[in-house]
Nucleic acid binder design. Sequence first.
DNA 1: ATCCCGAGGG
DNA 2: CCCTCTGGAT
Length: 179
Amino acid sequence: MVATVLSAQCTDERVNQVTRSLFPKYPDAASFAEANLTELEEAIRPTGFFRSKARHLHKMGERLVDTYGGEVPATMEDLLTLAGVARKTANVVLSNAFGIHDGIVVDTHVKRVTHRLGLTDSKDPVKIEKELMTILPHEAWHAFPWRLILHGRTVCKARRPLCGECPISNLCPSKGDFD
DNA sequence: ATCCCGAGGG
DNA sequence: CCCTCTGGAT
């Protein structure tokens, strides 16, 4: 969950670089709750948005300790009460940490790629999620967004998508829009 | 709608 | 120089 908060507007490589030293120093909810804010900011600085992310993680730690016994709750409703956690992050935690696939992760990649593929016309992530839930069989709800995220990072990139190397360009109404 | 953040790529 | 990078809160 912490790594997912840090991942906002940041490459995964940089998140991994930071968490390697961050997690040994902050191994549990209490350590974030008791953290010195400035120190925490410096520890996560390379991930960007470090002041707001540090504030979120600190408040998140406090609430996890005060309300949830230092454990991460396993429901959407509870997760949404945590600082720095909205629907996207909550779906990631539910799906990857708890194996609960009641929703579909809709991040910037899923949003962009589903638009280009013509799977949705909506700009609202919640509406996109609901539309995908009607299109996809439940067994696909977990894997689908991760496949799209990988595809979005490597091929269907935001700026200059590599349509010539895309294995599903035959399915894509946006093919050639970026030449 | 805007702000938060800055390294790295084209 | 402009844009992107696994968002969320105000």
